[in-house]
């Protein structure tokens, strides 16, 4: 048995040299028990939009609403319990709910929806870093940020660089990235938070998650913005995708970009990275499904269906 296996692999090895295609007959050995599906659901820039937009809203009448989103998320969880619900920041600011309750209701409602993880956007500093800290007891989920150094702030040790979830035996590593605060947020609000270069940090993070932590999936929760047309070199999700490796998915925010479908970018090694952002105000929910197969890595790469 072992010997036959070895011969098969040798044959596969030589076949690979001749042409990758013939390998597929080995890679796709049918194994119904060996497939898994991990669903990633995500929002960004919900901006305190607990209620649906007004019926006379000029752009998105009667869209969104936290209670509707909860129903949708529950339906998708019933379909696949192996689901993570994530947010890419700017949970705060945008309706009187924030002005009156300082983010308490946003965190409580997200906790009821069983959000798993979020990163911090610039507006999450709007009541100061202390205002954010004060609301944290209302959040049952954690925040990650790898490029904000919180050492000399109240968030030291509370907001960590990354978090790993074991979902149906699949190791999912998620790290957070935030936008430069200088010029965007008053210093008196973010205090001693130090912004670190997101690209350098992402290269470290993806290596740690892929190699040291042996993650099967590496996801970046980013509030950098999708792309800046006036300054295409400014750090953004597309720049991040292009200059890093080992990241499978970048979930973005900040620019309120309504992508009609997830964007497929190419990383430093020429591999595909999915970048998604779903506008703002809870108008849309993003859904990314990763299918896993037991066996050795397919040399065909993976199939990506977007839209």
């Amino acid at each position: 048995m072992r010997r036959r296996d070895f011969i098969q692999k040798s044959a596969a090895g030589s076949a690979m040299v001749l042409g990758g295609l013939s390998l597929s007959s080995f890679a796709n050995i049918p194994d119904t028990e060996g497939t898994k599906r991990i669903t990633i659901l995500h929002t960004n820039d919900t901006h305190s939009h607990i209620d649906p937009l007004a019926a006379d809203d000029p752009k998105h009448p009667n869209m969104g609403g936290a209670a509707r989103r909860a129903t949708l998320v529950e339906q998708l969880r019933a379909e696949n319990p192996n689901t993570l619900l994530l947010d890419a920041g700017d949970i705060f600011q945008g309706t009187p709910y924030f002005n009156y309750y300082g983010g308490e209701l946003e965190f409580k409602v997200m906790s009821m929806m069983k959000y798993d993880l979020a990163t911090m956007g610039n507006h999450d500093f709007d009541n100061g870093i202390d205002g954010f800290y004060k609301q944290l007891p209302h959040a049952s989920f954690d925040f990650v940020s790898a490029n904000y150094d919180f050492k000399n702030t109240v968030l030291d040790g509370i907001v960590k660089p990354y978090k790993i979830f074991m979902v149906d035996g699949i190791n999912v590593g998620i790290f957070g990235l935030g936008i430069q605060l200088d010029g965007l947020v008053d210093k008196k609000l973010y205090k001693e938070t130090v912004y670190l270069n997101p690209i350098d940090v992402a290269q470290d993070m993806s290596r740690i998650l892929k190699n040291d932590e042996q993650c099967d999936l590496v996801i970046c929760l980013s509030h950098l913005g999708f792309i800046y047309d006036k300054d295409k070199e400014k750090v953004s999700d597309l720049v991040l995708a292009r200059t890093t490796k080992n990241i499978d998915l970048i979930i973005g925010g900040h620019t309120h970009t309504f992508l009609s479908k997830p964007y497929v970018a190419e990383n430093l090694e020429g591999k595909e990275v999915l970048v998604n952002q779903v506008g703002c105000y809870g108008i849309n929910l993003g859904q990314i499904d990763f299918y896993f197969e037991k066996g050795r890595k397919s040399f065909k790469g993976r199939t990506i269906n977007v839209g």
Partner: peptide, 30 residues
Amino acid sequence: ISCGPKKFYSNRVDGKKIPVTEQYAPDSQI
């Protein structure tokens, strides 16, 4: 080559956006 552990590999990804419309009845608890 032959005894390496069979690991799980991601071989397919599907992605889309779902508009949150009134077709989803509000969750009564929330």
